[in-house]
């Protein structure tokens, strides 16, 4: 009999969507959004076609680093409940395929961004891919509980790249957007680690919760949130800020500080009693926090083109 349905290897053959999943589409959404805001907040305008193509290549570069991360972390992903269904641990895509896709898309995206925008933007994209795939995934993630802090830089580069696409140079405003994501990442992930503890334990990833204990993690969330609040509100007084940004930022940071304070004041008994409700709420708020901050920067930039917004 030659019924192909009896061949497990063929039954498990990847669909196009499985290769797309290697690129971490949800991370790509964030990258596209923040890079777009960085590009539009810059003082120079970009031709729509060049802007569209450049952001697309940044997204492809981010996807490539995601594929490289999945290739390297396949053993960890197989252990963690949250990631066990990713294409490689699920057996749909071979590790070598993910590596080839990651390397090929990295080269393509960097080269094309250099052609569509400028060499500095391409260099920054290359550095970002290197930082995420090599510095974070291969080096820091399994070596230090500060993995999230330093690795967060990789996710913070897109608005800087967006800014460089438009201006061809660095500036304080671009680095403020970088700092916003950089400082936001640790409390965001540590809140997740508080209520997904067993996952990271099983995978032997040295999260702060595992290495320094949960009370220390709660203190760290509070400390980073205070620094983040100062930075985020302070950004409101720069060239990319304005009344709308400042209003949004003050409200969000107050809510964020209250959430961090409540996390800090709780112990494990209280947290387990309500199944980490406060931590889950804080994590959900953190998603809105970043989206709304960059949304406000985008609104200010849009208003400025009509002679409004800003200071």
């Amino acid at each position: 009999m030659t019924d192909v349905s009896q061949t497990p290897a063929l039954e498990n053959e990847a669909e196009l969507g499985d290769y797309f999943a290697l690129l971490k589409p949800r991370v790509m959404q964030l990258v596209v959004f923040t890079a777009l805001v960085g590009m539009l907040a810059a003082p120079q305008s970009v031709h729509p076609v060049i802007g569209f193509a450049s952001i697309l290549f940044v997204a492809i570069g981010a996807g490539a680093s995601g594929a490289l991360n999945m290739w390297w972390d396949a053993d960890i992903d197989a252990v963690m409940r949250r990631t066990a269904k990713r294409p490689i641990p699920a057996g749909k895509v071979q590790p070598g395929e993910a590596l080839a896709l990651g390397v090929a898309l990295s080269g393509l995206s960097v080269m094309m961004l250099g052609l569509s925008a400028n060499l500095l933007a391409a260099g920054m994209l290359l550095f970002t891919i290197f930082f995420y795939a090599v510095v974070y995934s291969m080096w820091l993630k399994r070596a230090t509980p500060q993995n999230i802090v330093i690795g967060g830089a990789a996710g913070a580069f897109p608005p800087v790249i967006g800014w460089i696409i438009a201006t061809g140079s660095f500036s304080v405003e671009a680095w403020l957007m970088f700092a916003l994501i950089f400082m936001w990442t640790p409390p965001h992930f540590w809140a997740l680690a508080l209520f997904m503890r067993s996952d990271y334990d099983d995978a032997n990833v040295p999260m702060l919760t595992v290495t320094h204990g949960r009370p220390a993690t709660r203190r760290h969330i509070m400390a980073y949130t205070v620094l983040l609040a100062v930075l985020a509100v302070g950004t409101g007084f720069t060239a990319i800020g304005g009344y709308i940004y400042l209003g949004v930022s003050v409200v969000l940071n107050l809510l964020f500080l209250i959430g961090a304070w409540r996390i800090w004041q709780r112990d494990e008994v209280a947290a387990e009693a309500d199944n980490y409700l406060v931590e889950r709420k804080f994590f959900r708020l953190s998603l809105f926090y970043l989206f709304l901050h960059f949304g406000a920067i985008l609104i200010e930039a849009t208003l400025r083109t009509w002679g409004m917004g800003g200071w």
Binding site: A14, L16, H47, V49, I50, L56, L115, S116
Partner: peptide
Amino acid sequence: KGRNVGVGLMLGGFVVLVMVLTFVK
């Protein structure tokens, strides 16, 4: 077939994008 059509469409889209980009540049 879905995979092949998908890759074909992406390659076609890439060709068009490079053409439009070249024209704008």
